[in-house]
Design a protein around this nucleic acid. Structure first.
Lengths: 203, 203
DNA sequence: CGCGACGTTGATTTGCCTCAACGATTGTGG
DNA sequence: CCACAATCGTTGAGGCAAATCAACGTCGCG
């Protein structure tokens, strides 16, 4: 199983923002990663089954979701250069509550929890990567939580439009609705209302 | 400024679950922590001001909250043995969106971000503590998010009753309501409904 | 071409909010 | 230790934003 060079370069760039590694250390790190390709709407894993790897997204888009009363609700979206894992298995506390599937065709690089733990042993400074990853995941959850706590459906959508245009452009509308915690019909009405009352600069 | 021995012992116990330190290393770690006492309803910091420390709760209970349209909405509750910090300042991205205040009289041990960064340099294995703390904060946010995404007001309350009885017993009802994202009146009605239809074992 | 998934629009329902009033409890100063 | 005010929880009535149910046009894909 070979890994595309460009994919590895993206991965290295992402890690290099956090720690510096020499050639020997890079060899150690990179040996553990292996590729996974997903086609649009193909699942990585489903809710209830364990997630045993951390993923780096080289390209494409995935979403986490759970099923309630037969309909899907989206948790988060991830794009190229994002990291994702479901921490429930890692922390050993529970089976996953979210499933993950591809929204677009995807290329991922995975490292198993077992190998990651090994890496932490071999290269203690790699702990820093784990910490920064967890902290930034935490940060994005916090931001989302603020929106949940404070904003109405319309405000949430405007917020998303402003801060994450990627999502609006690349994700089907019904998934955006389920991410915002509203029904597709409601989002459709919100969009109509917004387009009738466009943004007026300096009004 | 002296730190009570029992307080230090709790802190050491919490860290010892993650890494082993020798006497010399403990000296390095402990020198950075300093105590803070809060009286019931006293703020640690308010939304918009920076948070420059990580806190370990020795005793008592604090909550995070934000203000929307003049009324307070609770983000999370923390109890003895919990860790808390607002990551927005740490990550250098924004001023705090949540304020923190004491729900009960509290004793905290704080370490400044500056000293924590210093500690990471001096004792690289302490990165592991930072990682585990971020991971477990992330985990509890995930759990809360699942509730937000999946449960009605009544289900959320029952969930809380089952998984975090601490909150029900030690926190005023209107704060619980604001944590669940509902109004005090609604929580009151939910409680009445539940007490009229008590849990029936194996029914 | 025809089917299924997607987005839109309308009519109706509903869970929760809002506003208002009222006991119960707490805590504070005389 | 009591009187009083303030805070807290409860209950009722009415309103609203979003859900639900239903129908329909459009697009993409096999």
């Amino acid at each position: 199983m070979t890994v595309r060079t460009e994919a590895t370069d993206l991965l290295k760039a992402s890690i290099s923002k956090i720690i510096d590694l020499n050639d020997q250390e890079w060899k150690v790190v990179l040996q553990y990663f292996f590729p996974l390709r997903l086609k649009k709407r193909e699942p990585w894993f489903t809710a209830g089954s364990p997630c045993n790897e951390v993923a780096f997204l080289v390209s494409g888009c995935v979403r986490t979701y759970l099923v309630k009363d037969g309909n899907e609700r989206t948790g988060q979206f991830f794009f190229e250069n994002d990291w994702y894992t479901d921490y429930s298995t890692w922390l050993g506390k529970a089976p996953t509550t979210f499933g993950v599937e591809a929204v677009e065709n995807c290329e991922l690089l995975l490292i198993s929890f077992r190998d990651l733990e090994r890496l932490y042993q071999q290269l203690p400074k790699f702990e820093r990567v784990g910490r920064v990853m967890a902290e930034s995941a935490l940060w994005s959850l916090c931001l989302q939580k603020v929106t949940y706590m404070r904003d109405s459906a319309e405000e949430s959508y405007l917020q998303l439009l402003e801060t994450r245009p990627n999502v609006i452009e690349r994700v089907p509308q019904h998934m955006i609705a389920s991410y915002l915690g509203i029904e597709p019909e409601t989002l459709s009405r919100v969009r109509r209302k917004i387009s009738q009352q466009p943004y007026i600069a300096n009004a």
